[in-house]
Design a protein around this nucleic acid. Structure first.
Length: 213
DNA sequence: GACCAGGCACATC
DNA sequence: GATGTGCATGGT
């Protein structure tokens, strides 16, 4: 398994080069983007984040203090805007109450503290929590998403029915716990997934084509 | 005009 | 514990 995971990483890295994933200027922007991208194309998220920047709302207290409708309006392009407004506000409230609104304070805590805390926030599930831990807090957590299950399931590396935690554990057990590696690997999975592994896949052009056959 | 996208919570069996 | 449903926009 170790060799397989590294081999696939090598194939993807050779095809794409460095991804410098995640797109986002600050840890808070990354955290907000993680919520907004739930089941949504990133291009839609970009519009919403541009709105937040223009409205000077990309700051936890600013979001909490502004009228609900104004935040909703900014989030319209990202889809599910009513749900996501609540979810983003829940995260802001958590950040302000527990860490004085500072991602840097949050990032000083260990994973064992942060992960359960994040999962307690309504609207933050396993993937969103791990996005925030890895990309906004620089914690060595492997992020699993729909592409991860599809790519590694279709190639027979894991069962296509494998659960989130089992899949995450598979990567974390078999790779060096290295933040940079985890960031790049997930970024490469997203890029590969977008290009070749949608619900109607383009396997013939995939850099992993025939890899394990 | 249908199908799809980097989820999540909640209801129901 | 497994399965189904609502949530909404913009691109293909």
């Amino acid at each position: 398994m170790k060799k397989t995971l590294l081999h696939i990483y090598g194939r993807m890295a050779a095809h794409y080069g460095p991804t410098h994933w995640w797109p986002g200027d600050t840890p808070f922007e990354i955290a907000v983007g993680a919520v907004l991208t739930q089941n949504t194309a990133w291009t839609n998220v970009e519009r919403a984040i541009a709105n937040l920047k223009r409205e000077r709302l990309l700051e936890p207290r600013a979001m909490l203090e502004c009228p609900r409708e104004r935040l909703e309006e900014a989030l319209v392009p990202s889809g599910y805007f009513r749900v996501k407004t609540v979810r983003v506000l829940n995260f802001c409230a958590y950040l302000v109450e527990r860490y004085d609104g500072a991602m840097a304070n949050m990032a000083r805590q260990p994973i064992e503290t942060l992960r359960p805390e994040l999962l307690e926030v309504n609207g933050i599930g396993p993937e969103t929590a791990d996005d925030i831990l890895l990309y906004a807090c620089d914690k060595p957590v492997f992020v699993v998403d729909a592409y991860t299950r599809r790519i590694f399931g279709r190639h027979g590396v894991v069962s296509e029915q494998i659960g989130y935690e089992d899949l995450r554990a598979t990567f974390e057990r078999n790779l060096h716990k290295n933040v940079h590696l985890f960031k790049e690997y997930h970024g490469l999975i997203v890029w590969t997934g977008k290009d070749f592994c949608r619900r109607t896949p383009k396997c013939e052009a995939c850099p992993l084509g025939g890899l394990l056959k």
